[in-house]
């Protein structure tokens, strides 16, 4: 649990970060809270000769809500997500999900940006942001661009972000309707055996819109358009939920690990998603 030697940088602005990335290329990594990267470095599974700490970069630690738009800086911690009353009003699913990430100590340090950019299939925020149809702002040598959360994840630890870019901000349209984040884990601090993020709006007792994503059941988060569509225009009864679950089960691809074999994970995915839909609908 002792990392190899590395150089540590703490630039005062984003330009400084980008300059270091340009200089060191593959050998450099940016770090926000460090709660994924540092353990990997200690296990010597990640070799990072040049570690760039983002903590001193201004303008990346705020939560701004206006005109139905929520902007979350990449350095916002899970704790700040939970503590922010305005956010709890506009997008309560964020608090519900963040409460189920790790433990309080980790949440004081772990950031939304780090959780999203790392590309770890076990992280909760990627699936959640796909459910919310978030946009990620990436800043690189050629300026700024925006990538949809639903387009961002390519494979485990592989994302649309290039090595010389930094994820700086997440933008979400404030969701409406009912929500639920349902997660099964073995213990506090564990990754999900299965987790589901659901947002549903209803109109006249029927589902108007539904967005459904799941976590840690594939090498990337799984947002299933067809699962959501299966609920639309229904009263979200047993058959509709079964149909939505069936679509989702078609799209997930869990692997066996210490949490259990594939058949178990698929079964749990179905149970967790069913409960998430039911809870979200009860709040819609």
């Amino acid at each position: 649990m002792i990392p190899a030697a590395f150089d540590y940088y703490r630039p005062k602005d984003l330009a400084g970060v980008l300059a270091l990335l340009r200089e060191h290329g593959d050998d450099a990594r940016v770090m926000a809270g460090g709660h994924s990267l540092i353990p990997m470095m200690k296990l010597r599974m990640a070799e990072v000769p040049h570690l760039i700490d983002l903590q001193d970069v201004p303008g990346m630690s705020e939560i701004l809500i206006s005109d139905g738009k929520i902007r979350i800086g990449a350095l916002v911690t899970q704790y700040e997500i939970i503590a922010h009353e305005g956010l709890a009003q506009s997008a309560p699913i964020l608090r519900e999900a963040a409460m189920q990430i790790a433990d309080p100590q980790v949440r004081y340090m772990g950031t939304v940006g780090g959780n999203l950019a790392n590309g770890d299939p076990g992280n909760d925020m990627p699936g959640l942001m796909q459910c919310l149809d978030a946009q990620f702002t990436l800043v690189g040598p050629d300026g700024e661009r925006s990538v949809a959360a639903r387009e961002f994840y390519e494979a485990a630890y592989l994302t649309a972000r290039t090595d010389d870019e930094v994820l700086t901000e997440i933008t979400i349209s404030a969701p409406t309707g009912g929500y639920a984040y349902e997660k099964q884990k073995r213990k506090i601090g564990d990754y999900a055996t299965a987790a589901a993020a659901v947002q549903i709006t209803q109109s006249g007792g029927r589902c108007a819109l539904a967005s459904i994503a799941m976590t840690n059941l594939s090498d990337v988060p799984v947002w299933s358009q067809s699962a959501g569509s299966a609920l639309v225009d229904t009263e979200v009864g047993g058959d509709a939920i079964k149909a939505a679950v069936a679509y989702m089960l078609d799209e997930i691809d869990p692997t066996e690990d210490n949490r259990g074999p594939v058949a178990f994970k698929r079964h749990v995915a179905g149970a967790i998603l069913t409960r998430a839909i039911q809870r979200a609908w009860s709040r819609a």
Partner: peptide, 9 residues
């Protein structure tokens, strides 16, 4: 969890 599930299964 999975072994209990397996028992039920």
């Amino acid at each position: 969890h999975w072994r209990i599930w397996q028992t039920a299964q």
